[in-house]
């Protein structure tokens, strides 16, 4: 296993983070790090514990170990407090609120903002600039949109919370390659703007195009920690998948 870049100004760092469902431990002690301006991809086969890792960081599942964010530990078992620190998740399956309109979903993204209208408008303008299609469909019920539009909405809603780091769980799930490329292009824009992103993804080639670093997760443990440019072929990656 090759070690990734040397430790630097990590914005998010897990320290021996484990997760369990009932009596079953699904995540062995895990140490990962995301630095400012990085897009870090978590790759691995089905059931490797990738989504669980994101849930564990947010405190949505039973955990041990610590998650340090901006140098301070994140509270455990209190997702509201975690999100208040600027750690925002775009969940697998998008988690949009179908019976609500696009605009209401975006308003919910800025829930913590309260009644600061100018700031809300600033954030909304930024989101609509990134995803103009959401602007065209503001009054549409979110549940009636296509999968790609729903994914845009899920990311847009997360951005409305002005995240300090964005956690994304399989944003390409169920999307055509063309739409996946479009979504990933937007993520690359966000990365270039300096937003740290932790991306869980099964479509490794697409993720590797934008990722700075990669962790390969297999059977609930980190099998490899690599710089993205160290992976040049499927074989480079496959060797870690079932180790």
């Amino acid at each position: 296993m090759t070690l990734a870049s040397a430790p630097g100004d990590a914005i998010l760092e897990t320290q021996a983070l484990t997760a369990r469902y009932g009596h079953v431990r699904v995540l062995a002690p895990t140490d990962i790090r995301v630095r400012t301006g990085e897009l870090v991809a978590i790759l691995g086969p089905n059931g490797a514990g990738k989504s669980t890792l994101l849930r564990a960081i947010l405190g949505l599942t039973s955990t041990t170990g610590q998650v340090m964010f901006q140098g301070k530990p994140l509270p455990r078992g209190d997702a509201v407090a975690v999100s208040a620190r600027g750690v925002v998740l775009v969940p697998e399956g998008r988690g949009i609120f179908g019976p609500m309109t696009v605009e209401e979903n975006l308003q919910l993204g800025a829930y913590r903002l309260g009644r600061d209208k100018p700031e809300f408008e600033r954030r909304l303008a930024r989101v609509l600039e990134l995803f103009p299609r959401l602007g065209e469909r503001r009054a549409q019920l979110a549940g009636s949109m296509s999968g790609g539009e729903q994914q845009m909405l899920a990311i847009g809603r997360a951005l409305m919370g002005d995240p300090k780091i964005l956690l994304l769980d399989e944003p390409s799930l169920g999307l055509a390659p063309r739409i996946t490329a479009e979504i990933f292009e937007k993520l690359a824009t966000l990365r270039d703007e300096g937003l740290p992103i932790l991306l869980v993804e099964q479509k490794a080639p697409a993720a590797l195009k934008m990722a700075t670093r990669v962790y390969v997760l297999s059977l609930g443990r980190i099998a490899a920690s690599l710089d993205a440019d160290q992976i040049t072929s499927h074989e480079d990656l496959a060797q870690y998948y079932f180790t």
């Binding site: 947010l58 949505l60 997702a79 509201v80 999100s83 208040a84 925002v88 998740l89 969940p91 988690g95 609120f97 179908g98 019976p99 609500m100 209401e104 308003q107 919910l108 993204g109 829930y111 913590r112 809603r157 919370g161």
Partner: peptide, 18 residues
């Protein structure tokens, strides 16, 4: 909106700060 959000998904609402 917070009512509706938690009605749709408690975890989803929590993740948004509700």
């Amino acid at each position: 909106r917070a009512f509706l959000a938690l009605g749709a998904s408690e975890n989803g609402a929590m993740a948004l700060g509700v």
